[in-house]
Amino acid sequence: MSLGATTMFFGTDIPTLVAGVVLLFSILLMLVRAIAGPTVWDRILALNAIGTKSVLVVALLGFMTKRPEFLDIALVYAILNFLATIAILKYARKRRLG
C-alpha cells in the first residue's frame, strides 16, 4: 500500500489513520452512553449514532484498502439503520409496532 510521496504511518496515510482513530473513539463514547444512558432516548440516539459511525467505518475501510466500491455497502447500512431507528422510535412512542 503505497501512496507515493504521502507520509505513511502504521501502513496507512495520516488522514485515514486520524479518521479511523476518531471514528473508533467516538463509537466507544456512544457505547458508554448506550450502557449508562439514564433515559430511553439516550440509548436510541446512541444506537443511531453508532449506526452512522459504522457506515463511516465501512466507507473508510473501502478507501483504506483502495476499494471505493465499499460505498455501496455503506449506503445499504445507512438505509437499514434508518429503518431500525424508525421501528424503535415507533415502539418507544406507541408501545406497539402494528
Partner: peptide
C-alpha cells in the same frame, strides 16, 4: 439496543 449495537459492530 446493545444487541443491535453488537450486530452493527460485527457487520463492520
Amino acid at each position: 439496543m446493545l444487541a443491535s449495537i453488537y450486530s452493527l459492530l460485527m457487520a463492520c
